[in-house]
Design a protein around this nucleic acid. Structure first.
Lengths: 182, 182
DNA sequence: ACCTGAACACCGTTCAAGT
DNA sequence: ACCTGAACACCGTTCAAGT
């Protein structure tokens, strides 16, 4: 990659982050290009779709979330690790308004640039769920895709509503994941 | 209201319903006007905002949901009534893609045309929650706003994902609403 | 009292032409 | 190898002019 191209790439990512933070994932691509000091065609050359841009922005952060899952598995009892990782993932999915929707909609779309990210998260979820299930910490029928739906739903609520309210629903969902009597 | 105005009003509502069903609540207003056979200005004269249009579309349906809540209170035990009404409300909120977001975002915005609908739903939720709480059917700290968040979150998931997956998460959320051990 | 539709501002996306 | 920006298609919203 040529040096000027690399520089444009970095500036586009930085401005996209600013714009997505401020206006959500629907932010204007033209404004991102303008603020990065490049023509709109340059943005499209580097990122053919909005999802591709989003994927590049999330990549590092996503790796971190997976890494934190590994650590939790090593250091914490099953139920605790699962809940802690769910909370980390919700916070992660709250980076931009609209991100939760982008993530859940690529869950079963292998052609999406974000599919890899979803898949990696689901695999880590699978390990945490499996471990908690063996320990009897969660209901036996709970799956990794339930956890994924729970995380994105909690993040979506968090986008729209007070932190207190979002926390209350997250509490209810996590409790609902535990073994049920009767 | 003049007869021709009334006719335009009705046609706009009918076409908006078609468009929202097909493209979600972000459907093109210009297309709705075009299909209704009126100029775009006429649409704006009848419905100053997209939310106002949505509100008119939901009004009847909303009254029905409240009415069904009344019946459930009369005919069913507290826990059962609550769960049944939650399911009815989720289905109601699934009418158009994007409706769950519109509803939750007007929850604490009294200036929104949809505020009345949210408020009515929350009041009915309050009655059902109160009744279930007295019977010990739900956790003592659960509130009507928790129920509202739960319903919209479940509807949002349903918009994005298979009915089976949505049902699984709804089951988890409703179970999490029950009294928790420990 | 209601309707029309041009006008304005904005956006996503492509692609021929430039360096 | 990469960048530019005009061109096209589309949309939301307003408002002066018409009936």
């Amino acid at each position: 990659m040529r040096a000027d191209a690399r520089r444009n790439y970095e500036r586009l990512l930085a401005e996209a982050d600013v714009a997505f933070r401020e206006h959500g994932t629907d932010a204007s691509l033209e404004e991102i290009a303008r603020r990065a000091g490049v023509a709109i065609g340059t943005l499209y050359a580097h990122f053919p779709t909005r999802q591709a841009l989003l994927e590049s922005l999330m990549r590092e952060r996503n790796d971190q979330v997976i890494g934190q899952g590994e650590e939790l598995i090593k250091e914490r009892p099953p139920g605790e690790a699962l809940e802690a990782w769910a909370r980390i993932s919700v916070a992660h999915t709250t980076a931009y308004r609209g991100l939760a929707a982008s993530l859940i909609s690529c869950f079963d779309d292998p052609t999406s640039p974000l599919y890899g990210a979803c898949h990696a998260m689901t695999e880590m979820g699978e390990r945490l769920v499996e471990r908690a299930r063996e320990a009897g910490g969660i209901r036996p029928d709970a799956s990794a895709s339930d956890l994924f739906a729970l995380i994105t739903a909690a993040a979506w609520v968090r986008e729209q509503v007070s932190e207190e309210q979002a926390e209350r629903l997250l509490r209810i969902m996590i409790d609902g994941l535990r073994p049920q009597e009767g």
